[in-house]
Amino acid sequence: MSMLLEVSGVSVTFDGFRAINNLSINFAPAELRAIIGPNGAGKTTFMDIVTGKTKPDEGTVIWGDRNISLLGMSESQIAMEGIGRKFQKPTVFEAQTVRQNLAMALKNPRGPFVVLMHKKTKLNAARIEAVAEQIGLSDSLTRVAGELSHGQKQWLEIGMLLAQEPRLMLVDEPAAGMTPEEREKTTDILKEAAKTRAVVVVEHDMEFVRRLDCKVTVLHEGSVLAEGSLDHVTSNQTVIDVYLGRAHA
């Protein structure tokens, strides 16, 4: 099966510190993947590289059917290629309504002049409502995003990703700060989304990862330590030593 995203031999150094060390990792077109690993393992930095925020010192990042390189593309070009990203700290436009947040994210032409002349249409309104339904914010469309609860903001941000209709969703710690019920709902949203696209979830919470029920990649010191089913990686002695042992200590 040809891969949707192929990251190979990527390294990044910050002031002499190797945050990503010869990292190679691949994703298939429709898969759900969890990435776990201790703090500072390089999970967020990996997403920064794929989305164009951080330029790696070496290595390649190859995308899509046409095998194009994402390196050297701007964040917006990469987003338009079909890669959506949720930040570790929820970032929505707090001063604007849920509807406006989703409308901005909706997959549509992004040029300033097209946007300037943009007219609201029934079709777009329906698309926004469909996404709001998926993330459980149908009744909150007119609310200002800043008023939402922490969990709702996380969902809104996931909703913005869905509205972008990406082929790859990179989701950084979606369940952080959520109640157990909220976590459950978040897994449902992500599993549903992964039916038609690749979804990569970074998460510390093992229960959450278990419920995702998918292939797991363990990152440590900037490279892949283990990969496979959750049971497989959690029985790996090195993983227990560097990550799980610490979490349970």
Binding site: A79, F93, Q96, R110, V115
Partner: peptide, 27 residues
């Protein structure tokens, strides 16, 4: 209009606007 949403978005969180696929520089 939507232009206003985007430029207010740039004011409040420029990175988010980039990652939504808007070329912030042009705006």
């Amino acid at each position: 209009g939507k232009m206003g949403n985007v430029i207010k978005g740039i004011r409040d969180n420029e990175a988010r606007v980039w990652f939504l696929g808007y070329h912030v520089e042009r705006y």
